[in-house]
């Protein structure tokens, strides 16, 4: 049984006086224990909204999210349910993810308290993420972005999550720190037996750490599959375009191909397949009917 199952999730962002923006429009996804799933897609495609909904930070308009067999409820003013503290998240901005007024040791201790862990010290958690344990008495401003992200990982892991979510945790970091932090997240999650949902728009890093990859476009998951398989044989035209857009450092002088056009407004999505206005292989049916969800959601690969 999978750890997390997201089924036909719909999330609308409502602003009074404007039409609702459907950020996630029927996305299905699952993460098994000990599995690393990479969720990729362009900016604004709904990746972060999906992650927030899984944590209960955003209310789902439709569909279901179940975690360890129970539903995920919206986090309101009440204390988060103890079973749901097994889902922890590492956020994007390392400069906003730690309380500037508290020592990092105290913030990691909050995580240990959540897990009722009296044996581990904050210093011990810091050592697990590759920082000296003696730094627990310092304040966040004394650390670099990469170090802060490690501290945020230590705090999340201290709560002994069975599902760790990284919401673009590396996109604000230096290139040199990106692979390090991503690999660290993978190793620590896998070591502790937790599932990891890693959201990124950086495909080369996702390829490095993910067992399975899910490609999201305009609120829908268009293709899922084992990372190596998707990499070797991308089937959805959008996945193919994403992969072609990665620069290849092989010295052959090939320039990455750009995917023409922009992501349409999620408040007013195109009819039929959401990708058809930008798709080089669009057929008549693409603008009329939406393809069925599946490993590949595309009319080029009709369900058998």
């Amino acid at each position: 049984m999978s750890l997390l199952t997201v089924d036909e999730l719909v999330v609308d962002h409502r602003t009074p006086g404007r039409p609702a923006v459907r950020a996630v429009a029927g996305a299905s996804l699952s993460v098994a224990a000990g599995e690393v799933v990479g969720l990729v897609g362009e900016s604004g495609c709904g990746k972060s909204t999906l992650a927030r909904a899984v944590c209960g930070l955003t209310a789902a308009t439709g569909g279901t999210i179940s975690f360890e067999g129970g539903p995920v409820t919206r986090l309101g003013l009440r204390r988060r349910d103890r079973s749901l503290t097994k889902i922890q998240m590492v956020f994007q901005d390392p400069y906003a993810s730690l309380n500037p007024r508290r020592r990092i040791g105290a913030q990691i201790a909050d995580g240990l308290e959540t897990a009722r862990d009296r044996d581990t010290t904050p210093g011990g958690m810091l050592e697990r993420v590759g920082l000296p344990g003696g730094m627990a008495g310092r304040y966040p401003h004394e650390f670099s972005g990469g170090q802060r992200q490690r501290i945020a990982i230590a705090r999340a892991l201290a709560a002994r999550p069975s599902l760790l979510i990284g919401d673009e945790p590396i996109s604000a970091l230096d290139a040199s720190a990106q692979a390090q932090v991503a690999t660290l997240m993978r190793n620590l999650a896998v070591e502790s037996g937790a599932g990891l949902l890693f959201i990124s728009h950086d495909l080369s890093v996702v390829r490095l750490i993910a067992d399975r990859i899910a490609v999201m476009y305009l609120g829908k998951i268009v293709e899922t599959g084992a990372t190596a398989e998707v990499w070797a044989n991308p089937r959805h035209p959008y996945t193919q375009a994403l992969l072609r857009a990665i620069p290849e450092p092989d010295g052959l002088g090939r320039l990455p191909e750009e995917l023409p056009g922009d992501v349409p407004d999620p408040a007013d999505p195109p009819p039929g397949c959401r990708f058809h206005p930008r798709c080089p292989m669009a057929m008549d049916i693409c603008s009329e009917k939406e393809p069925d969800p599946g490993p590949v959601s595309c009319w080029l690969y009709p369900p058998a």
Binding site: L75, Q88, M89, F91, G111, T114, R155, A159
Partner: peptide, 8 residues
């Protein structure tokens, strides 16, 4: 939000 996720 992180604090809330930890069950504050």
């Amino acid at each position: 939000l992180s604090g809330r996720l930890l069950g504050f």
